[in-house]
């Protein structure tokens, strides 16, 4: 029989309070390498840091609001939900920092180069391939772009979803790649993806060069965000934020980690770039205004 749980010692309690706990979603094995590396880097700068991995963003956001973690490395959709859940409790979350590569992204709606599709209106009655149900860049934002141009998903065109790894908010880009494959294979008439992934999918051979062309491009939006929780110790979080922003690509120790994480520099957090996603979430009824999950088909 296991021994009954014992109370934390005073020293353990003190350590628990002074350790910055960050949550990250395990969408790829490299996540462990990245945060283990950052943990060692923080330790050399006297910041007691640890991280917790979650299998999905929904649990991570709930843990942030409950105080189990102080900071969440959030997808844009997770940032939207965190802000709504906090608002519903009369609290607020804080945008601490983001990667340079998280700013001013666009998504593109791509068709085959030889298709008789010249305008968005030509998509009426056709099949539009999107990524996972919870992908901001390959599903929510592009579908809202089509709505804004008078095309209702599921009514004016067929939405061909490529659900993969629900709850990871499209980070692994597998659903997005499957949407591109559907377009290349003739199973879809258009596909939605982030601008850089159109280039990636051509370069890696998923889309043959010259086979596709962009039909439309969404407005700019922002992607991931280091989000501070409402009850996190302010001094500890501020120290973490300053250290994050001080990371330099010139530092040979941190550079490989930045490369893995896909950035050259951390930037100040900002929230203006989430307006398009907020609107898309409302239009798709993905979350309600209080952050409750209202999308019936969502599994994670």
């Amino acid at each position: 029989m296991a021994a009954p749980p014992t109370a934390l010692t005073e020293r353990e309690t003190m350590r628990h309070a002074t350790t910055l706990r960050l949550g990250a979603v395990a969408y790829d094995p490299k996540v462990v390498t990245i945060w283990d590396g950052f943990k060692a880097w923080f330790a050399r700068r006297d910041l007691d840091f640890d991280y917790v991995l979650y299998s999905n963003y929904e649990r991570q956001v709930e843990a942030l609001l409950d105080g189990a973690i102080h900071v969440a490395w959030n997808s844009p959709l997770a940032r939207v939900r965190a802000a709504r859940l906090a608002g519903a409790r009369g609290a607020a979350v804080r945008a601490l920092a983001m990667r340079d590569t998280d700013r001013d992204l666009t998504s593109v709606i791509v068709v085959r180069a030889d298709a008789p599709i010249r305008t968005l209106a030509d998509l009426k009655g056709r099949r539009v391939a999107v990524g996972a149900i919870d992908s901001p860049q390959a599903t929510l934002i592009p579908l809202d772009h089509l709505r804004a141009h008078g095309l209702q998903p599921g009514l004016d065109f067929e939405v061909q979803r490529h659900d993969l790894l629900g709850g990871k908010h499209g980070d692994h880009i597998g659903g997005e790649r499957d949407a591109a494959r559907a377009l290349a294979g003739g199973r879809a008439d258009a596909a939605c993806m982030i601008d850089g992934n159109h280039l990636l999918f051509v370069n890696e051979g998923t889309l043959p060069p010259g086979m596709t062309r962009g039909l439309a491009r969404t407005g700019r939006y922002d992607h991931c965000n280091l989000t501070g929780g409402p009850a996190a110790p302010a001094d500890l979080v501020e120290r973490f934020r300053r250290l994050v922003l001080s990371m330099s690509y010139d530092d040979p120790e941190v550079r490989p980690l930045l490369d893995l994480e896909g950035l050259k520099a951390w930037k100040e957090g900002r929230v203006e770039g989430y307006r398009a996603l907020e609107a898309a979430v409302d239009a798709a009824r993905f979350y309600d205004r209080d952050g409750t999950i209202t999308c019936a088909d969502y599994r994670y």
Binding site: D100, T101, V108, I194, D195, G196, L199, Y249, K264, A265
Partner: peptide
């Protein structure tokens, strides 16, 4: 589109 994405990734 590709130029904007490439520039972002390259810093």
């Amino acid at each position: 589109v590709h130029l904007a994405a490439w520039c972002r990734a390259q810093g």
